[in-house]
Design a protein around this nucleic acid. Structure first.
Lengths: 314, 314
DNA sequence: GCAAAAGTGTTCCTGTTACACCCATGG
DNA sequence: CCATGGGTGTAACAGGAACACTTTTGC
């Protein structure tokens, strides 16, 4: 992590570059994701060669191997420069799609839409309503027939310390974090256990627990994103975005447990999940189980469930 | 709010500008803050001429009148361009100090320092510990003899939509929000009820409830900052930063009530505040009251009270 | 019927709310 | 001693954790 200090006189002249990088989480069993040519790197890399190590479900993150200086050859978060006519959120979507081979599709967002309702006087009794930012996608209802763009995308932080890039030009990075729908979830899509094969050669998925050395301060960014994901999972509802349109409560609970690394009593989890008012029974039931089939639910934001309602990024 | 679309061909050539803007909150009774030459503007402006309207304590925000296009003549958040060798947090501090006439002093910050403890496995039982980001200033212990720089400063959001500036050059703004220690609070400083007079002529304080029309999308930024402040006050502990080193529980409760716009039972507030484990009695008591003097407390972050512990901005 | 998971009921406990009451102080 | 706010006690209530128990399926 030693940045060689750059040429100051040059740096002073150059305008800062603005980039967007994304931490995209996917939830998969070990050994189920298509690796890159030579993943498994120095010590911690998650080599995909040994199939089905354990059947634990864990968080995976796509990384891109840099082919330019600085940090050429090291893994980095997917991302790219902010184009002149592009909103940062769109840059995140686009570069993420480029990296993991998905069409830019549904978006979920930031302290999102409806700038009007950011009024005071709704702060009355915050005790039980979840907490900070999160909100509903106004044009929700996930479009079914697409290659799974991020199911959730939210700004994380803008990193702008002058010393974070070793190059001549200063680099300000707006970081996003995203959730990718699990390939094993109910949707009608590719169930081959391998993520869409259109992803480029220099991309690989790594277990969030054991990442290779990362370029820039990307390791910090990942740590922060992980922290945010866990917080939002615990206090708010994002976990369902890893799943398809409909899911069982056991699936939802499994996602929670995988993210938080805890066990939860199924009975209590059920009650709390249902009490949130955000789960609507679809009427369908699970099929093909050896045991009693579970009811399926769909997520639907309860009116006034939390809603700060505000859209910094339209 | 109609931005005239800029000259596209020119815009395409110019690199984006990066600016930092801050929403700084101060908590003062009505009519206690030194106004600008001619505050009170179109409709909603808080004219300072009528002294002591009501004795309600409310949130105030400093604004700067722009003297350059775009939006010349309109009020805007204090801020300025990100200098080539400056971290955004420092830019926020500096420009805020320029605007409100305070020396850059103590900082508190962001998902703050100690990048190590951002480990997993501390997410165990999040039920009662407060919630999202917030953390202790490692080098805390507010330096006493300064002109009250912001008592709290945290990144809010990076606004980068291409259409948010009407000028030829694209503008990306990293917004911060800050808390300014109340001038009426216990410290040894200027008690004249007027904020430090070194502030420039084109700066005025406005009641957060009734702001004039703002440049760019600054009204949205303020709304978002207000929402964050209320959230953090309700779920976490920032409110004490409006006060001096030591304060009574009644003062702390008054701050909460002013921010959230609620009434709280003093008895219950007391218990909850003390139960947080973050308040240490100083041994001193209030003096000069007509009634029973209240004990004074100092805020001291309880070890493991929340702590995501991470520093995106070192 | 047996195994395993879905789903329900019940108890205990903790933290919050509402409110009655006592305590300390300046006038 | 009285007015007023500081500070304590306590009963009612709500939500969560723990766990016993019933239901539904495939084999």
């Amino acid at each position: 992590m030693d940045y060689e200090s750059a040429n100051v006189s040059e740096r002073r002249m150059l305008p800062p570059r603005i980039a967007v990088s994304s931490v995209a989480f996917a939830l998969e069993p070990h050994g189920e994701i298509s690796g890159a040519p030579d993943a498994g790197l120095s010590g911690a890399g998650a080599s995909m060669t040994d199939a089905a190590v354990t059947e634990t479900v864990t968080l995976w993150i796509p990384l891109v191997r840099r082919n330019r200086e600085p940090f050429a050859g090291t893994w980095a978060l997917p991302g790219g420069p902010l184009e002149w006519d592009e909103a940062p959120l769109d840059t995140a979507r686009r570069t993420l799609a480029d990296a993991i081979g998905a069409s830019p599709s549904e978006t979920v967002l930031d302290p999102a839409n409806s700038a009007n309702s950011a009024n005071p006087a709704n702060s009355a009794n915050p005790a039980n309503s979840a907490n900070p930012a999160n909100s509903a996608n106004p044009a929700n209802s996930r479009s079914p027939a697409n290659q799974a763009g991020p199911a959730y995308l939210e700004q994380l932080y803008a990193f702008g310390a002058p010393e974070r890039s070793a190059s001549d030009q200063r680099l300000v990075t707006i970081a996003y974090w995203a959730l990718i729908e699990s390939s094993a979830s109910g949707s009608t899509e590719t169930q081959n256990g391998t993520r869409d094969n259109t992803q480029p050669e220099n991309v690989a998925w790594f277990s969030a627990d054991s990442l290779p050395p990362l370029a820039f301060d990307h390791a910090d960014i990942v740590a922060y994103a992980l922290w945010r994901l866990r917080n939002k999972t615990a206090y708010s509802s994002v976990a369902y975005r890893f799943l398809g349109d409909s899911f069982t409560l056991a699936e939802l609970r499994a996602v929670h447990e995988a993210i938080l690394g805890t066990r939860t009593d199924p009975a209590n989890f059920r009650r709390q999940a249902l009490a949130s008012g955000n789960l609507v029974p679809t009427g369908e039931v699970e099929r093909g189980t050896r045991y009693r089939p579970a009811k399926m639910y769909r997520f639907h934001e309860h009116p006034a469930s939390d809603g700060m309602g505000f859209s910094p990024e339209p």
